Simulated scan of single mutants.
Amino acid sequence: MNNLKKFYSHLHAALSTQHLGSCPKGKDGMLNVHLVPHTHDDVGWLKTVDQYFYGDKNNIQRAGVQYILDSVVQELLQDPSKRFIYVEVAFFARWLNEQHDVMRHAVKGLVNSGRLEFILGGWCMNDEASTHYNAIIDQHALGFEFLRQNFGECGRPRVAWQIDPFGHSREQASLFAQMGFDGLFFGRADYKDIDQRKKAKTMEMMWNGSPKNLGSKADLFSGVLFNG
C-alpha cells in the first residue's frame, strides 16, 4: 500500500504541472491530427447494469466496464501525452466509489489537467424518440451533480455526445443548448442523409433547436460523425 501511495504521489505531482485544456503542441507545416479515444457503454441493454460493469455473461456481449476504466486510468497516469473522454456517469460513479482515496486523488488530478474529460455527463446516453423531456433533464442533472461534487468546474461537460441513439430530435438539441453545452456530436444518421450531407458539406452545422420560441438560446453547433 505504501509503494502504491508513493507511485501515485509521484504521478500526481507530474500531473499538477499541467493546466486545464492542455494539449500536445502541433507542428508547423504538418497536418496535425488529434486522436481522442473514447468509449460508450450501455447502461443496460443486452445485459443488466451489473453484468455490464463487472463483465459477466460475456457470451451475450463482451463488455466489462470496470476493466475499461482500470486500464484507461493506468495508461493516463503513466503517459502524460495521452487523453481520454468518458460519457456514462452511472458506470464512472460506481467505479470511482469502489476506489481507494489515493486513486480518487490521482483521477482528480487527471481531470484537473484536462487529460480525462467528461462529455455529455448524463447518467446514461438517453434515447431521443420515446424519452420524456422530464426524464432527460433529470438523468442529466443527476450526472452533472455527481461530477460537480467530485471534480468541481473541471468536471463540467462542454460537449454533448449522442453517438448511439437511433434517430435524433430537434428538442434534444434545444435541451442541450439550454444546459449550456458548447456543441453536440451524434451518430447513427440515415445513410441517405449522411450521403447528402457529405455532398453538400453540411456534416457540421448550427442546429436551430427552437427557432420560433427560444431563438438563439436554443442554437447549438452540431456535427455528424463520419463513421456513424
Rank of each mutant, 00 (worst) to 15 (best):
F84A: 03
N97M: 12
L116E: 01
Q61E: 04
F91D: 01
V73N: 04
F92H: 03
L69I: 10
G109C: 03
V87Q: 01
D79P: 13
N97A: 13
N97D: 05
V87P: 01
Q99M: 12
S71D: 04
R115L: 06
D70I: 12
D79Y: 12
P80I: 00
G109L: 01
I85K: 10
S113M: 05
D101P: 13
F91N: 00
Q61W: 08
V73F: 12
V72T: 06
L76V: 06
K82A: 08
N58G: 10
D70F: 11
R115M: 07
Q74D: 10
H100S: 13
I68L: 10
K82N: 09
D101R: 08
N112C: 05
I60H: 08
Q78W: 15
I68D: 04
G109Q: 00
Q74P: 15
V87L: 04
D70M: 08
V72P: 07
V107D: 02
V65D: 00
L77E: 05
P80N: 04
N112P: 09
G64C: 08
N97G: 10
A106K: 00
E75W: 14
H105P: 13
L76H: 09
F118P: 01
A106E: 03
V107T: 02
G109V: 00
G114N: 02
I85W: 14
E117Q: 07
N97V: 10
F91K: 02
E98G: 15
V89T: 08
R83Q: 13
R104T: 15
D79I: 07
I85Q: 09
G109H: 00
G109R: 00
I60L: 08
L76G: 08
W95E: 00
W95G: 01
H105I: 14
N58C: 11
I68Y: 08
Q99V: 14
H105M: 12
D79G: 12
N58M: 09
A93C: 15
I68M: 07
H105V: 14
V73Q: 05
Y86S: 05
V87S: 02
Y67G: 05
V107Y: 03
H100A: 14
D101Y: 11
V111L: 03
V65M: 03
L77S: 11
I60V: 09
Y86N: 03
V72Y: 06
Q78F: 13
Y67M: 08
L96M: 11
H105C: 12
H105S: 13
F92W: 07
S81M: 13
L110Y: 02
P80W: 05
V102D: 09
D101L: 12
F118A: 01
P80H: 03
V72N: 02
A106H: 05
A90N: 05
I60A: 07
E98K: 14
D70W: 10
S113C: 11
V102T: 11
L76R: 05
K82M: 09
N59M: 06
S71N: 07
R94D: 04
E98D: 13
E88H: 01
Q74H: 13
L76Q: 06
L76A: 08
R104M: 12
R104L: 11
L116G: 03
E88L: 00
Y86T: 04
H105D: 13
H100M: 12
